[in-house]
Nucleic acid binder design. Structure first.
Lengths: 188, 188
DNA sequence: ATAGTGATGACAGTAACTGACATGAAAGAA
DNA sequence: TTCTTTCATGTCAGTTACTGTCATCACTAT
């Protein structure tokens, strides 16, 4: 006889996504989530450090992907080229989960608290990219600046990709945004 | 006979800054702040929408300064030039309050919650800059991208300026960071 | 059998916020 | 003056996110 149903964490995550989607993040209490998952509030906080973190559990994997791509970029690649390759790799990952990404983004856009969490995760990604560049021998302030610019590119491209009516290729949008950046920064 | 001492808001802000500096943000309760200001918790929340907002009341003025500078930039200025002028104007404002800025930044660095709030304020600035550029006839995605890049420049430069041992000129650091950006994005 | 182990429940406590109502000096109208 | 209205503050009860602590009990290894 099983004492508890399996995959508490997964059930909590699913219940949370459903409720955030149905009523919005602010109108959902942790007690609601736990109840739908057949668990208690206390157990929710054993699996997620806070109410927002449910939506950001993938951040760690994304960071690893980005950092690895930068570290493994060819030696010949300039800093901005290295992070661009990295972003494209991430782009392909998102392409496979567009529906989920759109749903998640809609939820985040509905809550200032969630936007704040999203921004600090992106900021952490920028710092990780900068570190990866330093491993490649890129000096500061170039490393830090390139990390921040990469995240700026990602933000803009992701917005365009998510809000475009007909499904497009995120990697392609990223390449286009990079092209725009080069135009904007070109000295005339 | 005066019923209340004057400038409740100012007293609350000062008490909060003192306590955040003495014990850190997390170790300070709103009750502590209200008590030091000779007021009640409820009154704190009448003046500040939350515990973090005390540190960000200047954001509105900064946004106005930046937006005005972009709108009033010469017609001949390219998008990136317009926001650069804008950032330099902000830089001069910060130069005059370096000690305060350093103290405030130390407090923010000590709390993830405060970093999140800082990031969403910067994000709001990026959006405001993008809007100002659209008023100048700059089309998307250039406007949005330039706004984000401007904030990236500001973040990197501000960090360098705050952490440099001998006081430097923020506007100068900003110009240097822009130069770095041009190098990084230049096609080889 | 016996002794852990580890995920969960139960429960009390803190602190950030919110809503509703009361108070009384100050400012203006009569 | 006297009456009325305004408005910043106090008071208090309530909600909710989160934490610390201890109990429970199927499962596992010895």
């Amino acid at each position: 006889m099983v004492r508890w149903e399996p995959d508490s964490r997964g059930r909590l995550a699913q219940a949370a996504m459903e409720l955030y989607g149905e009523r919005g993040f602010d109108q959902t209490t942790v007690a609601d989530i736990a109840q739908r998952a057949g668990l208690t509030e206390r157990t929710f906080f054993r699996h997620f450090s806070d109410k927002r973190e449910v939506l950001f559990s993938g951040a760690h994997a994304l960071q690893e992907l980005l950092v690895n791509a930068v570290v493994n970029a060819p030696d010949s690649a300039a800093p901005l080229e290295a992070v661009s390759l990295s972003l494209e790799a991430a782009g392909n990952l998102f392409n496979a989960r567009r529906d989920f990404s759109v749903q998640r983004q809609r939820i985040i856009e509905g809550s200032a608290e969630l936007q704040e969490r999203e921004l600090i995760k992106l900021s952490s990604l920028a710092a990780a990219l900068a570190n990866a560049l330093r491993q490649r021998g890129v000096a500061d302030p170039t490393a830090g600046l390139t990390g921040e610019v990469a995240i700026a590119l990602f933000k803009i491209s992701f917005e365009r990709w998510v809000s475009s009516s007909e499904p497009s290729d995120l990697a392609e949008v990223l390449r286009d945004s990079l092209e725009q950046l080069r135009v904007v920064t070109a000295t005339t």
